[in-house]
Amino acid sequence: MTTAEKTDGGAGRPPAAPGTAGRAAAGAAPRAASRIAAGLGGAAVRAVLLVVALFWLMPTVGLLLSSLRDSTDIASSGWWEVFTEPAQLTVSNYAELMANDAVTGSLLNTVLIAVPSTVLVVVIGALAGYAFAWMEFPGRDWLFLVVVGLLVVPIQVALVPVAKLFGGIGVFGDISGVVAFHVAFGLPFAVFLLRNFFAEIPRELLEAARLDGAGEIRLFATVVMPLGGPAIASLGIFQFLWVWNDMLVALIFADSGSAPVTVALQQQVRQFGANIDVLAPGAFVSMVIPLIVFFAFQRQFVTGVMAGAVK
């Protein structure tokens, strides 16, 4: 079996051009013919995937271009008109959006919710993950199984009671309540992921540090956390995007002063047609940070998603 045949088997390279195929298979006419057929098939595959890619991009492009047209243009024609009349493009919607205190305030709230939720999940999850991985205490195994069981609990089960609870202790409507809820429901996955990762740390490494006189807390801070970097990065990015993009939890536990941008925009959706000049740029602004995080940390995000399957 030649290497050429192997790459043809789909290792991510385009099929050999007919010319090279001809040279490689000189004197083997049927093989050359099948190569050409495969090349044609490759062209069809490329065409189909190109159409799919355009199809997938189009909705987002539509939002972006809509956000760059003023409300009269949006009300009278489709966003594709900018291809023939580029003069329609304007940033006035964005200027108005940024001058709107309600929107900028809600963007700040989104940050104030997403950052603490992420940091707390990582820290609390790592502490518990380390305890489950390397500390001896009675009931450790079944307690960990309980955490695993909580992985798939739908947040809907907790909405009514937690709203009552928060009302009782006076954090209903406050950012701290929203953060606490996100942390609690992020924890099963965090503990699960980090325990499994920490458990892979070689025992000798920890023993050596203990022999050097490091206590558990120093061990955790100077050895375990740095070693856990990749898992912590995945977890952090995953949780950050999850919380940044959440609408339901904030819809229930935040009030108008602590509402994140998703909730602020949701309140405009009822009059979709009239508010499109706020909704389109607002939606795009709310997407910018997740998209930057996504493109900057694709690898960690994918790892997080894969570890989070069955969440």
Binding site: T60, M247, M287, F301
Partner: peptide, 14 residues
Amino acid sequence: MAISMLAAGIIFRL
């Protein structure tokens, strides 16, 4: 996958 369902919702309303 990186964007919120709210943003996706607005995108598809359009």
